[in-house]
Structure formats: C-alpha cells, structure tokens
Amino acid sequence: MSVGISDFSLEEAEAETGAVELVSGEIAARSPWELFLRRFREDKFAIAGLAFLLVVILAAIFAPLVCSLVGAPGPYRADQNALDIFGQPTGPSSAHLFGVDQIGRDVFSRVIYGARVSLIVALVSCVLTSAIGVVCGLLAGYYRGWVDTVISRTVDAFLAIPYLLLAIGLASACSFGNGCVGGLIKPGIPVVVAVITFTSWTYPARIIRGQVLSLREKEFVDASRSLGASDFRIVFKELLPNLTAPIVVFATTFLPQAILYESALSFLGVGVQPPTASWGQMIADASNNINTQWWYMLFPGLALLFTVLAFNFVGDAMTDALNPRSKRA
C-alpha cells in the first residue's frame, strides 16, 4: 500500500485559494471552501462516487431496515430450505436476491451487513492512523532534534517490516481467546483496526513531518512565539489548522485502502471472525466453489470493487480540488 502524496505542497494550494478579485476597490474574495466546492463539483466521477457512497453508508446504517424491505431474512439465518436437493446453494431468486451461501444464509443480507464492517473498520482505522501519524509528524517536525530522530528512525523501522506478514502474525496472535495486550485488542474488528493502524501510521507521520518542517519556519510561528505562546498552542492552534489539506488528502486516499486491507485480512482468515459478515471473508468462502456458485463471489466482490472505486474517485477529486496543480488528464 503506497500513499504517493508526499509531494503535496501547501503553498500551491494556498496560492490558488488565495485568489483575490478586486471589485471597485473593495476586496471580494472567495473563501477557500467555496473554491474547493467549485472545483470538486466539476468532477462527474466524484459526484457519482459520492452518490454511490451515500447509498452504501445509508444501507450500512439501516441494514436491518433494508433487509426487511426486500424481504431478506438477515445475515445469520441458515435456511436449509434455501439449499437445493443436493444440499447445494441456490442462485438469485425472488426470495434471495443474491442467492444463498453453502449453509443457506442470504447473500444479499450478508453483503449489506458486510458494508457495516468495511465502513467501520475503514473509518476507525483511518481516524486512528491519521491521529497517531499527525501527532507524531507534528512533534517530529516541530521539535526536530532527538524527538525527530526517535520518531523518524521508528518510522524507518516500521517501513522495513514486511507488514503483511506482521499483520497476519499479529492478527493470528490476537484472534483467539481474549485477544492480546491484556485483552485490549479483542478478536474481530478491533484486531483488524489495530493491525491496520499499527502498520499504516508511518505514512501520515512522514507526510506531516515534511510539511511541518517548512511550516515552522514561517514568520507567523515566530510571531506567535514572540507573543509568549506555548509549544502546545503553536503546534495545535497555529500549525495544525494549516495541515487540513494534506490530512484530508491522506484520509481520502487511505479509506479505500483500509477497506481492501480489511478484506485481505478477512480473506486470509485472520480478520473479522465468523459468523460476522465481511466481504473479504465471503470471497474467501466462495473461492472453493466459484465454478458453480458464481453469485456467492460476484456480489461481495462487486460491492468491494464499487465501494473502493467510489472512494478513489472522491479522494482524487478532493486532492485535485485542494491541490490545483495536480491535474489529471
């Protein structure tokens, strides 16, 4: 997983959002937010992606309602009657829109409930990863010296870890019984979030550190310090508000990757534990009989594909809107 946005430049965003229109001596400027919205709206893919994501989010939140509306039985009920006379799953029908799985559970319900897992994991790990990374990056960039040395070497060490292997190891160590770290990291979603955060915080840390190194040289930091401001105030009230662009860019790039990450872990059997529904896990289950029961693989696969794609469209559009020089062809 690579986050190729470290070359993002604050000045460029600023130079553009700083556009001022002089109207008869009065200064009439668009707020950065207005400019952002204007540019974002021009991207049709992003609008489509946003609409799709809205549907996914609503479906996830109101999963029970959605299931009952289409008459689906919910994700956990294994209905023997839904299997055919050979005990094999049946395909899409009016009773089961997306068919059923090997033990007769409704695939539609499981896809809808799987969205919950994907979104929760993506959101929570994105927030944690960004928070840890941003704080570490801020501290390293602001204090420099030994603080920077410690944080930067730690980041280097993390980047040297083969993290898929580590994730599998960590996840399997934490996936049984009461979990690890004294029960703090429980099997299931917490493990997945911990693994993703543990292996990903270095990306925002590096991006933010680089930005802070140049930001801290700006005179407004000196101005604040010469007024007697504390380090805490300078870091969180002066520097942090200037980092919204890189943080938003990171977060929107990271969300779809976290979804894929969760799916991969669940696919490998070290993620979300059965019977909780997860797209990755469903795909793994389905891979045994893909030749005959295509629906079991197709629908969670499409859900995953379209959700990630939608996040990417939105993320790209946000990056472009914040950073006018990165124009896609």
């Binding site: 700006k218 005179e219 007024l227 007697g228």
Partner: peptide
C-alpha cells in the same frame, strides 16, 4: 518572567505574507 517579558516587547515581521497565519 519570560512570558511577562514577552508582553513588553513585540516584533513586526518582514514578510507580510508569511507572518500571518493563513487559516485564521
């Protein structure tokens, strides 16, 4: 004492662009 001293002396900076926080 330093914080009190900061009240007594102030500075106007050279660069009117970088001396004001653009997000405030």
């Amino acid at each position: 004492e330093l914080k009190a001293l900061h009240r007594e002396m102030q500075m106007v900076f050279q660069d009117p662009y970088s001396s004001l926080n653009p997000r405030k």
